[in-house]
Protein backbone atom coordinates (compact mmCIF):
# COMPACT_ATOMS: atom_id res chain seq x y z
CA UNK A 1 0.00 0.00 0.00
CA UNK A 2 0.99 3.62 -0.43
CA UNK A 3 2.20 5.21 2.78
CA UNK A 4 0.24 8.24 3.94
CA UNK A 5 2.67 11.10 4.58
CA UNK A 6 1.38 14.17 6.37
CA UNK A 7 2.87 17.50 5.28
CA UNK A 8 2.27 20.20 7.87
CA UNK A 9 0.57 23.27 6.41
CA UNK A 10 1.45 26.43 8.31
CA UNK A 11 1.73 28.75 5.32
CA UNK A 12 5.24 27.74 4.23
CA UNK A 13 6.13 28.88 0.73
CA UNK A 14 7.45 25.53 -0.48
CA UNK A 15 4.48 23.45 0.65
CA UNK A 16 3.32 22.59 -2.86
CA UNK A 17 6.80 21.77 -4.12
CA UNK A 18 7.31 19.38 -1.22
CA UNK A 19 3.89 17.86 -1.87
CA UNK A 20 4.69 17.31 -5.55
CA UNK A 21 8.08 15.75 -4.87
CA UNK A 22 6.66 13.40 -2.22
CA UNK A 23 3.80 12.37 -4.52
CA UNK A 24 6.36 11.76 -7.26
CA UNK A 25 8.26 9.60 -4.77
CA UNK A 26 5.33 7.29 -4.13
CA UNK A 27 3.75 8.83 -1.03
CA UNK A 28 0.05 9.36 -0.46
CA UNK A 29 0.42 13.01 0.56
CA UNK A 30 -1.97 14.61 3.05
CA UNK A 31 -1.63 18.35 3.62
CA UNK A 32 -2.93 19.39 7.01
CA UNK A 33 -2.72 21.87 9.87
CA UNK A 34 -4.92 19.64 12.03
CA UNK A 35 -3.28 18.39 15.24
CA UNK A 36 -5.25 15.14 15.28
CA UNK A 37 -4.07 14.22 11.77
CA UNK A 38 -0.48 14.84 12.81
CA UNK A 39 -0.91 12.78 15.96
CA UNK A 40 -2.07 9.75 13.98
CA UNK A 41 0.27 10.06 11.01
CA UNK A 42 2.73 7.28 10.18
CA UNK A 43 5.13 9.88 8.73
CA UNK A 44 5.32 13.68 8.97
CA UNK A 45 7.15 16.30 6.90
CA UNK A 46 7.71 19.87 8.09
CA UNK A 47 8.50 22.09 5.07
CA UNK A 48 9.65 25.67 5.33
CA UNK A 49 11.31 28.60 3.72
CA UNK A 50 11.78 32.21 4.79
CA UNK A 51 12.40 33.54 8.29
CA UNK A 52 12.66 31.67 11.62
CA UNK A 53 10.50 34.20 13.46
CA UNK A 54 7.65 33.84 10.93
CA UNK A 55 7.95 30.07 10.99
CA UNK A 56 7.70 29.80 14.78
CA UNK A 57 5.00 32.46 14.88
CA UNK A 58 2.94 30.58 12.31
CA UNK A 59 3.39 27.27 14.13
CA UNK A 60 2.33 28.87 17.43
CA UNK A 61 -0.66 30.66 15.89
CA UNK A 62 -1.92 27.37 14.53
CA UNK A 63 -1.22 25.59 17.85
CA UNK A 64 1.15 23.20 16.10
CA UNK A 65 4.17 23.37 18.42
CA UNK A 66 2.96 20.78 20.94
CA UNK A 67 1.52 18.41 18.31
CA UNK A 68 4.90 18.43 16.50
CA UNK A 69 6.80 17.78 19.75
CA UNK A 70 4.37 15.00 20.69
CA UNK A 71 4.62 13.45 17.24
CA UNK A 72 8.42 13.41 17.37
CA UNK A 73 8.32 11.93 20.88
CA UNK A 74 6.13 9.10 19.52
CA UNK A 75 9.15 7.76 17.63
CA UNK A 76 7.57 7.81 14.16
CA UNK A 77 9.57 9.16 11.17
CA UNK A 78 9.85 12.92 10.84
CA UNK A 79 11.49 14.90 8.03
CA UNK A 80 12.24 18.63 8.28
CA UNK A 81 13.17 20.63 5.17
CA UNK A 82 15.19 23.89 5.23
CA UNK A 83 13.37 26.06 7.79
CA UNK A 84 11.86 22.75 8.91
CA UNK A 85 15.38 21.79 10.00
CA UNK A 86 16.23 25.11 11.63
CA UNK A 87 12.98 25.03 13.64
CA UNK A 88 14.23 21.83 15.32
CA UNK A 89 17.15 23.59 17.03
CA UNK A 90 16.86 25.28 20.42
CA UNK A 91 17.07 28.85 19.19
CA UNK A 92 17.96 30.97 16.18
CA UNK A 93 19.99 34.16 15.86
CA UNK A 94 17.53 35.29 13.21
CA UNK A 95 15.63 38.38 14.31
CA UNK A 96 17.39 38.69 17.68
CA UNK A 97 16.97 35.44 19.58
CA UNK A 98 14.13 33.28 18.36
CA UNK A 99 13.11 30.30 20.51
CA UNK A 100 12.61 27.19 18.39
CA UNK A 101 11.36 23.64 19.01
CA UNK A 102 14.39 22.41 20.95
CA UNK A 103 14.45 18.89 19.49
CA UNK A 104 18.08 19.15 18.32
CA UNK A 105 20.63 20.54 20.81
CA UNK A 106 22.25 23.64 19.31
CA UNK A 107 21.30 26.86 17.59
CA UNK A 108 21.06 28.57 14.22
CA UNK A 109 23.71 31.14 13.25
CA UNK A 110 24.11 33.69 10.46
CA UNK A 111 26.79 33.21 7.80
CA UNK A 112 29.40 35.61 9.11
CA UNK A 113 32.33 35.75 6.69
CA UNK A 114 32.07 39.14 5.02
CA UNK A 115 33.34 38.02 1.62
CA UNK A 116 30.44 35.60 1.16
CA UNK A 117 27.32 36.34 -0.83
CA UNK A 118 24.31 35.73 1.40
CA UNK A 119 21.92 33.98 0.96
CA UNK A 120 23.93 30.83 0.24
CA UNK A 121 22.01 30.19 -2.96
CA UNK A 122 22.60 27.41 -5.46
CA UNK A 123 23.97 23.89 -5.79
CA UNK A 124 26.47 22.66 -3.25
CA UNK A 125 27.79 19.25 -2.22
CA UNK A 126 26.78 17.16 0.76
CA UNK A 127 29.32 14.84 2.34
CA UNK A 128 27.76 11.91 4.19
CA UNK A 129 29.33 11.28 7.59
CA UNK A 130 27.77 7.85 8.11
CA UNK A 131 25.24 5.42 6.64
CA UNK A 132 21.54 6.05 7.05
CA UNK A 133 18.35 4.86 5.30
CA UNK A 134 17.99 8.44 3.93
CA UNK A 135 21.23 8.25 1.96
CA UNK A 136 20.62 4.99 0.07
CA UNK A 137 21.60 5.34 -3.59
CA UNK A 138 22.86 8.92 -3.21
CA UNK A 139 26.60 9.12 -3.93
CA UNK A 140 29.03 10.86 -1.62
CA UNK A 141 29.37 14.59 -2.46
CA UNK A 142 26.19 14.76 -4.53
CA UNK A 143 24.85 18.25 -5.30
CA UNK A 144 21.73 19.65 -3.68
CA UNK A 145 20.00 23.04 -4.00
CA UNK A 146 20.42 25.43 -1.06
CA UNK A 147 18.79 28.79 -0.29
CA UNK A 148 19.45 30.09 3.22
CA UNK A 149 21.16 32.86 5.17
CA UNK A 150 21.49 30.97 8.47
CA UNK A 151 22.94 27.54 9.25
CA UNK A 152 22.71 25.05 12.12
CA UNK A 153 25.38 24.83 14.82
CA UNK A 154 25.12 21.53 16.72
CA UNK A 155 25.99 21.08 20.40
CA UNK A 156 26.06 17.32 19.84
CA UNK A 157 27.95 16.39 16.65
CA UNK A 158 26.37 12.92 16.74
CA UNK A 159 23.29 14.51 15.12
CA UNK A 160 25.18 15.36 11.91
CA UNK A 161 24.49 13.02 8.99
CA UNK A 162 25.81 15.21 6.18
CA UNK A 163 27.91 18.34 5.96
CA UNK A 164 28.44 21.17 3.49
CA UNK A 165 30.98 23.96 3.22
CA UNK A 166 30.17 27.59 2.45
CA UNK A 167 32.71 29.76 4.23
CA UNK A 168 32.19 27.45 7.19
CA UNK A 169 31.51 23.73 7.28
CA UNK A 170 28.03 23.20 8.70
CA UNK A 171 25.71 20.20 9.20
CA UNK A 172 23.42 20.19 6.15
CA UNK A 173 21.61 17.00 7.16
CA UNK A 174 20.84 15.97 10.73
CA UNK A 175 19.49 12.59 11.80
CA UNK A 176 18.94 10.74 15.03
CA UNK A 177 16.48 7.97 15.81
CA UNK A 178 13.21 8.92 14.09
CA UNK A 179 14.17 12.50 13.16
CA UNK A 180 15.85 13.54 9.90
CA UNK A 181 16.15 17.02 8.40
CA UNK A 182 17.89 18.73 5.50
CA UNK A 183 19.06 22.31 5.18
CA UNK A 184 18.81 22.08 1.37
CA UNK A 185 15.65 21.66 -0.69
CA UNK A 186 15.44 18.05 -1.92
CA UNK A 187 12.26 18.97 -3.82
CA UNK A 188 14.40 21.29 -5.97
CA UNK A 189 17.48 19.09 -6.19
CA UNK A 190 16.58 17.00 -9.22
CA UNK A 191 17.32 13.29 -9.25
CA UNK A 192 19.18 13.04 -5.94
CA UNK A 193 16.56 15.09 -4.15
CA UNK A 194 13.76 12.84 -5.34
CA UNK A 195 15.84 9.83 -4.31
CA UNK A 196 16.08 11.30 -0.81
CA UNK A 197 12.27 11.62 -0.65
CA UNK A 198 11.89 8.04 -1.93
CA UNK A 199 14.30 6.92 0.78
CA UNK A 200 12.30 8.75 3.43
CA UNK A 201 9.05 7.20 2.24
CA UNK A 202 10.61 3.71 2.12
CA UNK A 203 12.13 4.13 5.58
CA UNK A 204 8.84 5.39 7.01
CA UNK A 205 6.96 2.46 5.42
CA UNK A 206 9.46 0.06 6.96
CA UNK A 207 9.03 1.68 10.39
CA UNK A 208 5.23 1.63 10.02
CA UNK A 209 5.34 -2.12 9.36
CA UNK A 210 7.53 -2.64 12.41
CA UNK A 211 5.36 -0.54 14.72
CA UNK A 212 1.82 -0.26 13.34
CA UNK A 213 -0.09 2.79 14.57
CA UNK A 214 -3.81 2.75 15.28
CA UNK A 215 -4.40 4.68 12.08
CA UNK A 216 -2.13 2.61 9.97
CA UNK A 217 -2.57 -0.99 11.19
CA UNK A 218 -3.07 -3.26 8.22
Amino acid sequence: MTLPVVVIDYGAGNLRSVERALAHSGADVRITSDAASIEQAPAVVLPGVGAAADTMENLRERSLVEPIRDYIASGRPFLGVCMGLQALLEWSEEGGRQECLGIVPGHVAHFRASHLKVPHMGWNTVTWLRDHPLTVGIPQDSYFYFVHSFHPVLDDPAWALGETTYGVTFPSVVARENVVATQFHPEKSGTHGLQLYRNFVAWAAEEARAVPTADHAS
Binding site: R16, S17, R20, A21, H24, Y145, V147, H185, E187, K188, S189, G190, T191, G193, L194
Partner: peptide, 8 residues
Protein backbone atom coordinates in the same frame (compact mmCIF):
# COMPACT_ATOMS: atom_id res chain seq x y z
CA UNK B 1 6.17 23.07 -14.92
CA UNK B 2 6.20 22.67 -11.15
CA UNK B 3 4.47 19.30 -11.52
CA UNK B 4 7.20 17.88 -13.70
CA UNK B 5 10.44 19.75 -13.11
CA UNK B 6 12.30 19.37 -9.83
CA UNK B 7 14.86 22.16 -10.15
CA UNK B 8 14.27 25.79 -9.16
Amino acid sequence: TADQVFIP
